[in-house]
Amino acid sequence: MNHFRHRIPCNVPSTIFRNISRRVSGGNGSHKRTMLAWQINAYGDNSNLKLAKTQIPVITKKNQILVKVEAASINPIDFRMRDGYGATIFRQTRKFKDNVPEFPLTLGRDFSGVVAEAGKQVTHVKEGDDVWGMSYMKQGTHAQYVLVENDEIGAKPRNLSHVEAASIPYVAMTVWTALCTTAGLRPENYHGKHVLVHAGAGGIGSFAIQLLKAWGAEVTTTCSSDAKQLVMDLGANHAVDYKTKNVKRELRQIGKFDVIVDGVGGQTEEYSLGLLKHSSDAKYLSLRSPIMLETDSLGLVRGGVSAGLQMIQKSVKLKNRFHWVFASPHKEALQHVQMLVEKEQIKPVIDKIFAFSELPEAMAHVEMGRARGKTVVDKFC
C-alpha cells in the first residue's frame, strides 16, 4: 500500500549541524543549543521560506514533551498558512496561549521522532521513545526539534518507519475530529453506515476510507479516473469520477448517505447537500469552514459573526445536521489509530518523499494538488 515514488538525498552541509546535540537535556546549558528550522518572516510564496538556525525549544510546563523530529509531512494547511491563511486567529491564539510573536513562524503540523525530554506530568511516553503526533496552534514541526503537549503525542506504531508514521497523525486527528468529536459518534456506531468521502485519493480521503472500513462502514468516494484503483484498493465500495458530467446523479444512484465527509467545498458542497439522508442522526461534515478567511478579511469580531451567520443558515437548511470540522489533538485517537496500524488495517499512503533540505520543493509539490496520499519530509539530519 505504501507509495514511495520519489526520494531526494539530504544534502544540507554537515558543518551546519556540528553544534546540534543528538540528545537534549534539561540542564543549564540547554537554552544555548541550536537547531535548524524552515521559517517564514512574512506571508507570501515559497521564496519566503528560509532555513534558519534557531534555539531548540525549552520545556516550561510539566505537560510538555521535546521531540527530536525524524520525519514530518506536508499538509495543505502548511502552504495556506505560509500565504497568510488564518493569520488573525492563529496570531491571537499564540499570543493568548504562549505569548509568542507571530514571526519567525515555523510551519508543519505532524511528525514522527524520538522523545528528547519529557515534563514531570508526562507518563505515557519517556525519553528515548519513538513517538508520533501533531503540533497544534503553535510553532510547527518543520524543524529538527518540536515542543508538544501530552494530548498531542503517542507511541509510534512499531511496524512503521518514521517516514511512514509521519504521514498519518494530522489526517488522523482531522478525520477523528470529524467522525467522532463533531459527529458525536463512536467507532462502533459506524458499522453498516453508508459514508461518502469526497477526494478519496488525497491525504484526508485515503486515511478516512481505511478508518471507516476498519469500523465496518460502507464507503463511497469521489476521485479522478486514474485514482479509482487506488481508492478501491484502500477499501472503497464505490468510486465515482468527480469529472463525470453528472456526478450528483451517479452518487444518488448509489443511494443517500448517513454521513458525508467533504474536504472540497464549493460546488461539491452545493450538489452534496441533497445526498444526505433525512434522518436526524445523519451528518454533513465539512472541512472547509470559512471562519479563517472571514476573520482574515473582516477581523476577529466581524469575521466571526459573518462565519457564524453562514453556519446558522446551513444548519437551519439541514436541520442541525451540517457541521464544520476543526482538527484538534486527541490522545485516544492516536492510540486507536496506532492499534489499527499495528493490525495492518490502516497503512500509510505516501506519494513522494523529500529530504529536509528540499522542504520548499515538497511544499510546492503539495500545492500543485495532484498528490496521491501524503508528501513526507525525511532525514532531519
Rank of each mutant, 00 (worst) to 15 (best):
M1T: 04
N2R: 14
H6K: 15
I8R: 06
S14N: 06
R22A: 03
G26P: 07
M35F: 09
I40N: 04
N41F: 15
A42M: 04
A52Q: 14
K53N: 12
T54F: 04
Q55E: 13
P57T: 08
N63C: 04
Q64I: 00
V69C: 10
N75V: 03
I77W: 12
R80P: 00
D83H: 05
F96D: 08
K97E: 10
K97A: 10
D98P: 00
V100A: 05
E102N: 01
L105M: 14
D110F: 13
S112W: 04
S112M: 04
V114S: 11
K120A: 08
V131W: 11
S135T: 08
T141K: 10
Y145L: 06
N150F: 08
G154C: 14
N159G: 13
L160W: 09
S161Y: 11
A166T: 08
I168A: 04
P169N: 02
W176S: 07
G184H: 12
E188Y: 05
E188L: 02
V195L: 09
H198W: 09
G202V: 11
A217P: 00
T220V: 14
T220R: 11
T220I: 00
S224T: 13
K228A: 06
V231Y: 05
V231M: 08
N237T: 12
H238V: 07
H238G: 03
V240S: 00
K256T: 15
D258N: 13
V259L: 15
V259F: 08
V259E: 01
D262P: 07
T268P: 02
Y271R: 07
S272E: 01
L273G: 02
G274N: 11
S280M: 08
D281N: 15
L293R: 09
E294A: 15
E294R: 08
T295I: 01
S297P: 00
L300M: 07
A307F: 02
G308M: 05
L309P: 01
Q310H: 14
K319S: 11
N320A: 15
H323L: 06
P329K: 13
K331Y: 13
K331V: 15
E332Q: 12
Q335N: 13
H336F: 14
V341N: 01
I346W: 13
K347A: 01
I353A: 02
A355W: 03
E358I: 06
A362S: 04
A364R: 05
V366A: 08
E367K: 15
M368Y: 04
R370G: 11
R372C: 03
C381I: 08
